[in-house]
């Protein structure tokens, strides 16, 4: 700089430009602003509408715009909504568990045992995503169906004489289908967190007398927890509101809260109640996520 230190540099022209160049936070917000606009328009705006709607009331085809808690009291009075929400949470939790349990070993294998071409493995993991989500769900319908792959296979092998009926149209079918559909989403964050673990930490644990298994429990697992948590959230949160898969493979016992909300905005034509159910299920998911995060914190303390 040409100015002497005792004389502060004064920008007489292009003041805004200079201010902008000098301000770390202004440039940060500028970088953030496109995303910020999308978030405000695409998330906050609809939530405000949804919340407002949930306090109104449907009267045949009209919506009465006066404040009422009727929709919320309906949720607590009619057991059916409560039961279906509970079932949705349970199915999603189960899907999350199954997905993590299946994804972890694969991520572990890629992170620790693949020496060359890790990228190729990662690409292979994402291959199912190259086809439509709907097609993948239909594929499971074909596999699990009454005359499906499993049943006809078992019959031609002579292991069963009648097709098994418990494969399709129940919560298990939903869990299997969703666990498969979300596998790649779970594998990637777990892989990244495992990949980041310094190998000498694992050697140090072995050196300090722990077996391979206890090294995993005491070092590898706690250090990969951020990835596991991220994967859990990525799988759990969207699957609670899932309605395509339950519709196709869930049957009546596999109905989830997403199906109810969808019908409220569709055939049942009760938007305010649909809005209230959406809000309630959102709050429930938030609560469940808090429980999950609290649980992992407790686990960390315990292992430590």
């Amino acid at each position: 700089m040409s100015a002497s230190p005792s004389e502060p540099v004064r920008a007489t022209r292009g003041g805004v430009r200079v201010w902008f160049m000098r301000s770390e936070s202004a440039r940060g917000y500028a970088l953030l602003s496109p995303t910020l606009v999308v978030v405000v328009l695409g998330l906050i705006f609809p939530i405000v509408i949804l919340t407002t709607l949930s306090f109104w009331k449907q009267d045949y085809v009209d919506i009465i715009r006066t404040f009422t808690l009727e929709n919320y009291s309906a949720f607590f009075e009619k057991k059916i909504y409560y039961l279906i929400l509970y079932r949705s949470i349970r199915i999603s939790a189960f899907v999350t568990l199954v997905t993590i349990v299946l994804a972890y070993p694969l991520a572990y294998f890629i992170a620790f045992h693949v020496q060359k071409n890790k990228i190729m493995w990662i690409i292979l993991v994402t291959i199912p995503f190259w086809t439509s989500y709907l097609l993948r769900v239909f594929a499971w319908k074909v596999i699990l169906g009454y005359n499906g792959v499993i049943n006809s296979g078992l019959i031609s092998l002579g292991l069963i004489s009648e097709p098994l009926e418990f494969l399709l149209y129940n919560p298990t079918a939903v869990v299997i289908t969703l666990a498969h559909a979300w596998a790649a989403v779970a594998i990637l964050p777990i892989y990244v967190s495992l990949e980041k673990i310094d190998r000498s930490l694992i050697e140090a644990a072995r050196d300090l007398g722990e077996s391979a298994f206890m090294t995993f429990v005491r070092v590898t697992l706690p250090l990969s927890l951020p990835g596991v948590i991220a994967a859990s959230l990525l799988v759990f949160i969207p699957t609670v509101g899932e309605y395509v898969t339950p519709t196709l493979v869930g049957g009546t016992r596999g109905i989830m809260i997403g199906n109810i909300i969808q019908s409220m905005f569709g055939k049942a034509l009760n938007w305010p109640l649909g809005a209230a159910l959406s809000i309630i299920s959102m709050l429930t998911v938030t609560l469940a996520v808090c429980v999950l995060l609290g649980g992992t914190r407790w686990f960390r303390k315990k292992v430590g």
Binding site: S200, E203, A204, A205, D207, L208, G209, E210, L223, G304
Partner: peptide, 26 residues
């Protein structure tokens, strides 16, 4: 035998006492 690693391999998820106690579980 026990080893002191080049990068020390201090367990980042544990505090100093837990690091020192790591090998004393049994």
């Amino acid at each position: 035998v026990n080893m002191v690693f080049q990068n020390y391999a201090i367990f980042p998820h544990l505090n100093v006492a837990s690091n020192i106690a790591f090998g004393m579980r049994r």
